[in-house]
């Protein structure tokens, strides 16, 4: 881990940089993406403002007694590729997940000056310890797939696709 950072300097980071992030992120995975994009298509108000925000592709386990959150590692990012552009258009800044993405997703990240990070995959217990607070934001009916606002501290991330569209992985 070379440095600690918050949101301000994320888009300037180059692929392969690893760092510890402190700040706020929103969980959203498959079904939440489907709902968000449906709302956008219908020109309806979103339950959160995406401008300058980071979405974490994650469906955590519930919080056991006395804890803030349960296991909370990343899920496979490329399943969210087809929903990416409308969210970037709404000002989404970053995404956290695992694995490579499609060529189209990478080009969208470049076009909208976004950035895509990896979190340690299959390390949900380790990441749970880096979550400081959790708040339900939208779609409670989705259970673990609901949108939660998480405050995280020293959350380990690696830049997988930078804002210039350079990726550590080949496209899929």
């Amino acid at each position: 881990m070379k440095c600690k950072t918050d949101k301000k300097n994320l888009t300037g980071m180059r692929k392969g940089s690893s760092f510890l992030f402190t700040g706020c992120i929103y969980t959203a995975r498959d079904q939440a993406h489907k709902k968000l994009v449906r709302l956008i298509r219908k020109n309806q108000k979103l339950p959160l403002s995406l401008k300058g925000q980071i979405i974490y592709y994650c469906g955590p386990t519930a919080a056991p007694n006395g804890r803030i959150i349960g296991s909370c590692g990343p899920t496979t990012s490329c399943r969210m590729d087809s929903f990416l552009e409308p969210l970037l258009k709404k000002g989404l800044l970053g995404m956290i997940g695992k694995g490579p993405r499609s060529r189209n997703a990478r080009e969208m990240i470049k076009k909208y000056k976004g950035v895509y990070f990896l979190a340690p995959s299959g390390c949900g217990a380790l990441l749970a310890k880096r979550v400081v607070s959790r708040k339900l934001v939208a779609f409670p009916g989705l259970g673990p797939e609901a949108i939660y606002k998480l405050e995280v501290a020293d959350f380990p991330l690696i830049v997988a696709i930078d804002s210039c569209g350079h990726s550590i992985y080949p496209d899929i």
Binding site: G59, P64, G122, L126, P156
Partner: peptide, 19 residues
Amino acid sequence: WILDNAGIAEKESIALCQD
């Protein structure tokens, strides 16, 4: 990270993976 994760999961009864 993977090994640390296994240690934390076992010691603190947090699922190894959210899945």
